[in-house]
Structures are given as C-alpha cells and as structure tokens.
C-alpha cells in the first residue's frame, strides 16, 4: 500500500522536512466584464500534518476561492492567481506544469465540496465515481478499482456498500451522499484534505456524524485538514487553528482557544458576539451591521471600516497593518488590536 503511494508520488521532488502546506501572500483576481474583483488579497497561512485549520468568514469573503486556488481548480477565466506561493512540502504548486500538478490534485491534496448532490455526477454510479480516482491515478483495472471503492464506502460507514455502489447520487440521503464524497476524496490517501463547508447542506444531527467521520479519518491518516466554514460551532469543536477572512483578506489568525477567549480583530469579535447565548436570553442578539463589501468596489483603507464599531479616520485613509504580531502563531490586521483585546464583551 505505502509502496504504491510512493510510486504514485514520484515525479514531484517533495522535501519531507518542509512544512506540509504553506500559503504565502496569495493573490487572486476575477476579471469580470464589470471590472477586476480582487477576490484574494494577500492571504498567508500554514498547515501541519494532523492539524485542523479552520478558515472562517462570511459568503464572499474568499474562503472557497482560497481553497480552489490551492487545488488549482479556479474557474479560469475569469479567476486568475496573480501572486503568491502555495508550497506543498517545499514545492510551489503554482509553478508546477499542469501535468505534474494533476498528480498532486486529488491524490495528495483532495477536496470535499459543500453540496454533494450537485458535486457528484448525476449520471454515473457512485462506486464508479470513487473507482475513477483509482483507475486514473493508480491505473487499477475496472474490477480492482470497484472492489477498492466498495472498501472505501465501507470505511466511511455506508451500509450495504457493495449493493449501494451501483446506485446513483440521487438515490442517497444527504448524509450518505456526503460520505460518498468523503470516500472519493480519501481514495488515494491524501495528506491534505480541504473540506469546503462539508456540513452546511445537512441536518444538524447528520452534521455531527460527518464531522466525527472526518476527525476519525484525520486521526487515522494524520491528514492536514482545512475546514472552510461559517459555522462557529463546528469550528470550536474540531479546529486547532483558525484564520478569519474578510473581503478577500486575512484579518486574524490564532489558536482556536485564543480566538474564542480574546478575539483581536473587531470583525472576529463581531462574529463571536453574534453567537446566540443562553445567558443572554431575552436581549437582542448583537449583529454586525451592514453588508459585506462589493469586491469590485472595496472601500478605501480597511475593508471592514464601514461596519466597524472602532473605526477612526486612520482606518478610512490607509490600509491597516497587514500583521500585528501578538505572539507565536497569532496575528491580526488592525490598528486597534489592543483595544479589541482588552474590551469586554458588550452586554
């Protein structure tokens, strides 16, 4: 098994000592008819083996675009990576020729999508879709690949996997479909798994099962997991580290405990305050006023200033410091980090 894995990984000269995945100053823009939208504006983070990194943000904050840029599956045009590096074990994926990159994609860095009903091909049986990974990347023949697909379906706890492998995506429940998606993503024992809102389309009880399954698989294989979500509850349960994104930029990076206890960016604070709490029953739920900015017309200065309770003239006139270091692995992009840290939670 491991030998097959190594031979499949031949071709790309990986450095085993280098960090698993490093994203450095990633820049993505969408060249639309209406103008150029800067979807990702200098995002950096690092992921270690066995670690869970949550990327948190509202719709349109650039979470999914970041994931797609790492995978190399941006819709292009209109999306283009215009700068930065994505280092996988020391190799910059953005510089690899497409043929080489395809060997990494799906095999070593795999991805799970939000809505498995639309993300799975409606006209092929699920077993075939899982087996396709093994046939294309490992050159397995049809029946061996099918057998292994069934084993993968068993591993993600799909009952009666052998019979169900012949079924089509629409014949599965939402939770089972997401399991199929997961089975497909882990087919080649990837070392990095990117889960783009894996539970958003599911019932709450099913959400918990899927998250547990992902955690079990992660523990078993020591995968690095990037969890893209806007669900703060999910994050608190499973993430080790969090990066918070706003309008295509990274506003805060921290350990999960630190972020929940002492958010350093007003946006992070706003997000946390908007979680309903039992001890505040009866009072209005604080919300971040206003709407996320239009990426085609970002506000001058700090992108968050129109919605920020702490905004001063300095926020409107110039960009905030990209990183105010707050200790190891902890940084925020704000002029008023100290005020935010010390301010108590508003009642």
């Amino acid at each position: 098994m491991t030998e097959i894995k190594h031979s499949a990984r031949g071709g790309v000269p990986l450095d085993p000592a280098a960090p698993l995945l490093v994203v450095e100053d990633l820049q993505v823009e969408f060249r639309l008819r209406e103008g150029v939208a800067r979807a990702i504006n200098g995002v950096s983070f690092e992921l270690a083996a066995g670690q869970t990194l949550a990327i948190l943000g509202e719709s349109g904050s650039g979470k999914s675009v970041t994931a797609q840029a790492i995978m190399g599956i941006l819709d292009s045009p209109p999306g283009f990576v215009t700068g930065g590096r994505v280092l996988y074990r020391g190799v910059d994926l953005l510089q690899l020729p497409e043929r080489e990159r395809r060997k990494v994609r799906g095999a070593q860095i795999a991805m799970i999508f939000q809505d498995a009903l639309s993300a799975l091909n409606p006209v092929f049986p699920v077993g075939w879709q899982i087996a396709e990974m093994l046939r294309v990347h490992r050159g397995l023949n049809r029946s061996d690949a099918q057998d292994q697909a069934i084993r993968l379906m068993e591993r993600v706890k799909i009952p009666a996997a052998r019979q169900r492998a012949r079924d089509y995506p629409h014949q599965f429940s939402g939770g089972m479909r997401q399991r199929v998606m997961i089975a497909m993503s882990i087919a080649l024992d990837p070392v990095v798994l990117i889960a783009d809102e894996p539970t958003t389309a599911l019932d709450v009880t099913v959400q918990a099962q899927i998250m547990r399954l992902l955690q079990d698989l992660q523990d078993e294989f020591q995968m690095g997991l990037i969890l893209i979500t806007h669900d703060l509850g999910v994050v608190a349960d499973v993430a080790d580290r969090i990066v918070v994104m706003y309008a295509g930029g990274l506003v805060e990076e921290a350990d999960v405990v630190d972020l929940y206890a002492h958010p350093a960016h007003p946006y992070s604070r706003g997000l946390l305050d908007s979680i309903p709490r039992l001890d505040q029953k009866g009072s209005d739920l604080p919300a971040i006023g206003g709407l996320p900015p239009n990426l085609l017309h970002l506000p001058a200065g700090c992108a968050f200033h129109p919605r920020c309770p702490l905004a001063q003239d300095v926020c409107r006139s110039g960009a905030p410091p990209a990183r105010v270091e707050l200790g190891p692995g902890r940084a925020a992009a704000c002029h008023f980090v100290d005020q935010t840290l010390t301010a108590g939670r508003p009642a």
């Binding site: 599956i73 990494v104 994609r105 799906g106 809505d115 993300a119 409606p122 990974m133």
Partner: peptide, 14 residues
C-alpha cells in the same frame, strides 16, 4: 459550469 465538473477537476482528471 456545473459543480460536478469542478469535482471532476478536483479529482485530478485531465
């Protein structure tokens, strides 16, 4: 433009 096409690309297919 469909989601499953993006999945197919994410699988590392040509």
């Amino acid at each position: 433009r469909a989601d499953y096409v993006r999945t197919a690309r994410a699988k590392g297919l040509s």
